[in-house]
Design a protein around this nucleic acid. Sequence first.
DNA 1: ACTGGCACTCGTCTGGTCTGAGTGCCAAAG
DNA 2: CTTTGGCACTCAGACCAGACGAGTGCCAGT
Lengths: 341, 341
Amino acid sequence: MSQDRKLAVLRAIVEDYVATEEPVGSKALVERHGLGVSPATVRNDMAALEEEGFIHQPHTSAGRVPTDKGYRLFVDRLATLKPMSAAEKRAISTFLDGAVDLDDVVQRSVRTLSQLTQQVAVVQYPTLSSSTVRHVEFVALAPSRLLVVLILSNGRVEQRAVELGTETLDDSRLADLRTGVNRVAAGQRIADASTALGGLLEEIPLDSAPLFGPVVETLVEAMSDHSRDDRVAVSGTAHLARYGDTFETSVRPLLEAMEEHVTLLKLLGEASTHGALTVRIGTEGPFSQFAATSVVSSGYGPGRDSPASLGVLGPTRMDYPSTMATVRAVARYVSRILDES
Amino acid sequence: MSQDRKLAVLRAIVEDYVATEEPVGSKALVERHGLGVSPATVRNDMAALEEEGFIHQPHTSAGRVPTDKGYRLFVDRLATLKPMSAAEKRAISTFLDGAVDLDDVVQRSVRTLSQLTQQVAVVQYPTLSSSTVRHVEFVALAPSRLLVVLILSNGRVEQRAVELGTETLDDSRLADLRTGVNRVAAGQRIADASTALGGLLEEIPLDSAPLFGPVVETLVEAMSDHSRDDRVAVSGTAHLARYGDTFETSVRPLLEAMEEHVTLLKLLGEASTHGALTVRIGTEGPFSQFAATSVVSSGYGPGRDSPASLGVLGPTRMDYPSTMATVRAVARYVSRILDES
DNA sequence: ACTGGCACTCGTCTGGTCTGAGTGCCAAAG
DNA sequence: CTTTGGCACTCAGACCAGACGAGTGCCAGT
């Protein structure tokens, strides 16, 4: 029995099953893929593949279905990424080039991804922590209320309101605050700015302390607050309809996860090394309720690090070659856009 | 035949059908609601109700199901809003009180709504147009690139990058710009600020024009740009799973609408007069694909106008009394929070 | 005006049969 | 040792008929 042919059979099974969504039998296989051998031969190979756990038959008189392990072998050794068509490339670039700011880039990316793959797409917002402070602005809302606006290099803007209690503001104190804070914070990476601000607190004149205190505190909090860090954009949930049969068991948990951004992020996985695709198949993931779901993801971001992930969720029975190609293409394109801006 | 009893029968049918999700027959009716008459009598009433189009029987040997018209009569004349339990009231207030900014208020509202009603909740962000300009800030990104930050009274922040071409910036010109723009714009309602800025363009010294021109243009655009105006928050899509049978026909279009914010807004309907509940049942809505879906919505917002809507989508077969009560309660509570801040 | 009775309808449940796709195994042929 | 044709076997799903029963409409009696 030739090892090569056995793998060819597995590949054929995966491809057929993905296309038809039905267990595939030996006869159909030799017909649809010119394997050049008889069904009986294929049956032997199939028996071996089943023995090794790559495929599985739902019931005695049915065809075979790939197992998670089978898909794994397929993506690792058998799949060649399907090259993107010119039309698809064009779609990506025209769609993404119109973006006006970071939010928009993310929104458009996630749309593009879901549209091209016909699946649920997820894009994590680039993390705050790797960016630098561009500017901090203060706006008086009322005599004792202050709006703190933190502007970051990646275009993100964080804002917080601060109650000053009995302390009151006037223009000159506001100016002091503005120059003082920006002197130490502007241009710094988030983490550095945070500690620098801490240091600032200790050297300021005593009479400014009641003002600076709460303000700096809020700023530090806003910087370290990763509550906005786990934001993700989701698109294409309607494609979940294609799970078909296993609705309550598969789709429901997914829909729930769509709103639990933390879960979603864990699913996407750590941002891997730049440009490398990660494929997580079915039960390989951390959540048992997504046993029928695969994740194809990639890190992306400006420069050479990948501060964020994007990817696609779909049934384990998905078209890996083209999904992977699309995810990679979008990740690259988005990274390039972020580089430019 | 007593008119009163006929209505009581309709009410009973609606309640039973909502509870059991199954067509309800005459016998079950008299048993579960102490109507004090025999099944045969009820049958006569039912025949009349069917004649008038309030109920309908799926097939000859089945019970009756309310029609859209039947639900309409029910909510208009028969339903008494179910008062909220103390626990629910507490849930609303504790959940919403923790909100730190406008975004957070909206997020928490939509979460609360979907959790309490066990349905899909939709909350429109308060429209930009009704708020005033708090402050406009400019930050130099590069010698010829400028970040314009527009801070509004409702806590929303809009930001745009401006390319200045050959024009270059320095601190004093930036200060000019800042004071100049804020002098005419700060404190104005959006629309007024827009026109005022237009006027500003004509009276500035000639040498500043190349700088002011593109900046003001961008600002006006950001103000009039309603692309961010149709933003909505959605939560609880997982509850769509309860549509059960009619998956492809009902749920899919809904999931698609969830991402088409424009559609969602149309569905939510015009923000009605403050505090008034709107109920749109099945085909009464503007979209034929949502024939099996009802919308319960209410305007909300600070003061006495309702710049935005919030509401709940669900199957026509929903528990109107409690849904309506919840929507109203949340709308009121959110309005109050917006009033305070 | 209400009620009990009765004949009727028709969707669903049950059990049984049939069909065909697909298998595993074996013996014969390369 | 590998491949192939043949053959008996399994079993899910389709199909069918009959029984069941929930629910109805109508009518005559109270």
